[in-house]
Design a protein around this nucleic acid. Sequence first.
DNA 1: GCAATAGTGTCTATGAGACAATATAGC
DNA 2: GCTATATTGTCTCATAGACACTATTGC
Lengths: 246, 246
Amino acid sequence: MIVNNNQTEQDFLDAYDPSVFDRPSTAVDTAIFTVIDDRLQVLIVKRAEHPFKDQWSLVGGFVNVDIDDNIEATARRKLAEKTAVTTPYLEQYETVGNRNRDPRGWAITVVYFALIPSAEIVLTAGKGASDIKWSPVKNGKVMEKLAFDHARILQGCAERLRNKVLYTSLPAHLMPGDFTLSELQKIYEIILDKTIDHKSFRRRILNVNLVEETGAMRPTGKKPAKLYRLRDAKHPHFFLRNFEAS
Amino acid sequence: MIVNNNQTEQDFLDAYDPSVFDRPSTAVDTAIFTVIDDRLQVLIVKRAEHPFKDQWSLVGGFVNVDIDDNIEATARRKLAEKTAVTTPYLEQYETVGNRNRDPRGWAITVVYFALIPSAEIVLTAGKGASDIKWSPVKNGKVMEKLAFDHARILQGCAERLRNKVLYTSLPAHLMPGDFTLSELQKIYEIILDKTIDHKSFRRRILNVNLVEETGAMRPTGKKPAKLYRLRDAKHPHFFLRNFEAS
DNA sequence: GCAATAGTGTCTATGAGACAATATAGC
DNA sequence: GCTATATTGTCTCATAGACACTATTGC
């Protein structure tokens, strides 16, 4: 590697050797949430290979610099391998990296969480995972013992999700195209694990330009309910006041 | 590399070769904010080496797996190289990683932002930086052209900071040990770039258990002001309602 | 006294919580 | 009619915004 003081940037790049310093491994893990059977659930896969072979883990894998243009592409690639959902709500949560979390050595993982409507769920185990399933999340935890530090990561994702639900319209991303306000409220209540006054809830949702009536009604057996759809499916709405955390 | 189906995890780790797959480079960059001369300012350094030699950039550098136990340690190490502040408010903002942001190839950076009281500022250029300075931040931008994608990253950090100031006590971390409420309000106003009604402000701060009187007064030339200190310097307070974003 | 800054009083507006009341369907 | 679910009415409470008012200092 030739170095001199009048080196141009191109000279530098031509001589650059990326293997001089050790690099941490870099992975992406995603807590994919949905609501099934009136419970918040997260997608977990059984690891087919060492380390933590045969243990359950969040959906993830290493960044592949040959095929992924950016980190989010890694997350979406892994998501596509496991589910048929192409445009979920996907938010970067945090990045964890240290010397001890992976027995193979210094490892970084960029953690995302995704919200997908339960109606759109099709699971495919695919390569690297011998089994895949939804597992109910209770107080940020699942029954299964998770590989690596995924239990702590899931806890953080669930807490972030709950906090954001107190002041955003995030749960709308868990709904199919059309939904009633009662259905949406139910999703809020499941994630927050507490009941919400229905009048307060309707006021909050209808006072902002979040949803619009489809014109159709959902027959419920009793009084039919108006169907709504999201006005802007891309961006969640941020309310100026929180629901009280209880 | 020996592989067979009855391999134990220890067998696997003994045979593991971390160089089989290319890894992105992994850096940490921090937008270090303070308030000087009634302006929000960010610390920038002039790069001593290629790429982007002689251009300004945020404070950062590569994760060193030999000396850093975790990512935050990298951030604190770089911070310590440039300032004398040991326990700033430090929050992970986001992680950016893609094929194009660094001419040396696929590169990840974990971005933090830090808040440090202006009283505690001592700058040391140190290795890797031929120059270092505070630069005023206006609408998330600095005058200087920044290296890599640091302009966009700074924009994001400044926006996150402003948003959090609308509902948290973050600006308290920009204050020295003792401060008056007027001084704290001034910091809020500088970051938000708008005036706040002083009655509303005092109500908000004093209604929660955020600060306590020191008993001393600050002579201001006019009516002296009560001095306060933070009750819990570690954790910022989250208010249930936002200041209106204006 | 005046000017400047610190600090208070109080009215209005917004929106959450509570909860009663009404509306519309199936039976 | 009765019951269940949807939807509305309205009172209270907490807190932000607006802004007038008082308090204490130096001059």
